[in-house]
Structure formats: structure tokens, C-alpha cells
């Protein structure tokens, strides 16, 4: 077994420039894959964060809103109990016109808009928290235009833009990762063929002495696997660096603070790192194996 490791190292050293190119390409493709995985994680977390906050707001019309501090008018009471009975709904909260005005004053404290807004311009609202946040549109459809209802707003649609942005970041990284992986696979395959070609006389002699095909080919396979593992380690290192020097600052900056939850070091080292090592090893091994089967006849 010592023999095969020695041979693999010799092989990697012999084509040093090729080996470096192979490792870099692998590292980049795995790094992109890792970035994509982190994006998916972040999107999931952002969605969790938002879905616990967002709700469907059923705004009541002027007559219903007026002078009703705790939803005692028949119209409001009926709407509320119908919502509460609905299996899609987790809970319903009533916010009276006065409460809405108080909240408004709190949010816009010290700003000139306060001078213009009277309590009368704000509706009373039923804040509906959905059991399944994705099905808010069904409530919107059902309650829009009902007596006593001014309008129904699914807050989810207002954050949909953010999610679609994050989603396209994810898709773009995965797309790049696929293209880059293709390049890495071709490069690995090519390097193995080259490696096998430069050593064909040697391998021929080994075969004559009675070495099995397996015995002569495992070094090439190990070359590929080493590439995959080193590439994955470099990719993980790159992601750690990207997190520390770039993402942490971006996500804690004024623009995005509290909008997108930060990426933890445990996400990179505990989740993405191992995945990349496994994926890198599997892809490199499979590429090596197929190349040896198809192109290396000795």
C-alpha cells in the first residue's frame, strides 16, 4: 500500500503545474457550490425570520373601524370568528384604530408626517398569523370585498422581492458551480490521461511483472482523490475568508443589518465544509474511475 501512495505523490509532483491547475479549478467549483449551499441556508433562515413576523392584514372600512376598541361590533366579531375557525389561520389579533395610531406615533416619532396623520386616516385591522405562511393569498382572495373590509394585504408579497433576489443569487452560484465543475472534471480526466500516458512504459513493465490493473491504476485514482480533498479544503478556507472579510461586514452593515441573518462559522465549518469534502472526493473518484475505464487501456 505504501507503494501506491508513493506513486501517487510522484505523479502529482511530476505534473506539478497541471496538478495546481486541477486543484484550483476544483477549489473554485467547490467554493461556488459551497456559496450556493450557504445561500440556501440563509434563505431558509431569512424566511423563518420573516414568516414569524409577517401576517395577512385585514383592514376594516371606515364605519367598522370607528369607535371600536376591542372588536365588539357584529361585523368585526363575525369576521374575526370566521378567521379564527379557518384551518389556515394560526391566530388573529385585533388592532383598533387608536392602537394603530399609537404605534404610528411610536414609529415615526419626531417626523413631520405625524402632523398630517389623524387617527381617522388609519383603519382598525385584524392581524392574521398564518399556520402556513405560503397560503396567505387564499385569505386575501376570500376576504377581499367582504362587507366591513377595506382591503386585505398579504405582507409576504412585500418581502417576496427580497426572497427572489436571494433566490437568484443562489441560482447564479449553482449555475456557475455546475459550469466550473464541468471544467474541473475535464481537467482531472485530462490530467489522469496525461499522467497515464507519460508512465505507459513503466505501467507496461509493471503489468509484465504481474501487477494487476488495479495495482497500477490506484496511484492515478489517488491523484484524483487528493485533488478533490485538497480542492475542498481550499474551497472551505476560501469561504471562511469570504465570510470573515466580506460577508460579515456586508450583513452587519447599515444596509442589511437585521434584514438577512448573519452566516455562522458553524455553517461553514460544520455543514458546508464536510459536504464539499464529500462532494469533491466523490466527483474526483468517479471522474478518475471512469477515465481509467474508458481511456487507459493498460
Amino acid at each position: 500500500m505504501l507503494f501506491v501512495w508513493r506513486e501517487a505523490l510522484v505523479g502529482l509532483r511530476r505534473n506539478l503545474t497541471m496538478s495546481i491547475a486541477m486543484v484550483i479549478t476544483t477549489a473554485i467549483s467547490l467554493g461556488l457550490l459551497g456559496a450556493g449551499l450557504l445561500a440556501v441556508r440563509t434563505i431558509d433562515r431569512t424566511e423563518d425570520l420573516y414568516y414569524s413576523l409577517i401576517a395577512v392584514q385585514v383592514a376594516l372600512d371606515e364605519p367598522t373601524s370607528a369607535d371600536d376598541p376591542d372588536c365588539t361590533t357584529p361585523v368585526c366579531r363575525d369576521l374575526r370568528s370566521e378567521l379564527e375557525r379557518d384551518p389556515l389561520v394560526a391566530s388573529v389579533e385585533y388592532e383598533s384604530r387608536d392602537a394603530a395610531f399609537a404605534r404610528f406615533q411610536r414609529i415615526y416619532a419626531g417626523q413631520s408626517i405625524l402632523q398630517l396623520v389623524r387617527p381617522q386616516s388609519l383603519p382598525a385591522t385584524l392581524r392574521v398569523t398564518m399556520a402556513d405562511p405560503l397560503r396567505g393569498t387564499e385569505i386575501v382572495d376570500r376576504f377581499t370585498g367582504r362587507p366591513g373590509v377595506r382591503n386585505v394585504v398579504d405582507q409576504r408579497s412585500t418581502v417576496a422581492d427580497l426572497f427572489s433576489f436571494l433566490g437568484s443569487v443562489r441560482n447564479a452560484t449553482f449555475g456557475l458551480a455546475v459550469v466550473q465543475t464541468l471544467a474541473a472534471v475535464l481537467l482531472i480526466s485530462n490530467t489522469i490521461q496525461l499522467s497515464a500516458f507519460t508512465r505507459r512504459t513503466e505501467v507496461g513493465i509493471m503489468r509484465l511483472v504481474g501487477a494487476t490493473r488495479w495495482y497500477t491504476q490506484v496511484p492515478f485514482l489517488i491523484e484524483a482523490v487528493v485533488t478533490g480533498v485538497v480542492g475542498a479544503v481550499l474551497a472551505t478556507g476560501g469561504l471562511v475568508a469570504a465570510k470573515a472579510f466580506f460577508l460579515d461586514r456586508l450583513l452587519s452593515g447599515r444596509l442589511l443589518a437585521n434584514t438577512i441573518p448573519p452566516i455562522g462559522m458553524s455553517d461553514v465549518l460544520g455543514y458546508v465544509g464536510p459536504v464539499l469534502v464529500v462532494v469533491g472526493t466523490v466527483i474526483a473518484t468517479a471522474t478518475g474511475y471512469v477515465t481509467l475505464r474508458l481511456y487507459v487501456r493498460q
Binding site: V10, E202, L208, V209, G210
Partner: peptide
């Protein structure tokens, strides 16, 4: 095919051009 190495392991061969592993 897979039994060929077994055969060659029981045969010794010597050639005009020696065929030693150069490294």
C-alpha cells in the same frame, strides 16, 4: 483478463532492452 496477473506472477521474463523501472 483478471487472472492474467496471476499467470505472469509465476513467469519470469527478461528482454533485450532490460525493461527496468527507470525511477
Amino acid at each position: 483478463r483478471r487472472r492474467v496477473p496471476r499467470l505472469r506472477q509465476r513467469m519470469g521474463c527478461v528482454f533485450q532492452d532490460f525493461r527496468l523501472l527507470p525511477n
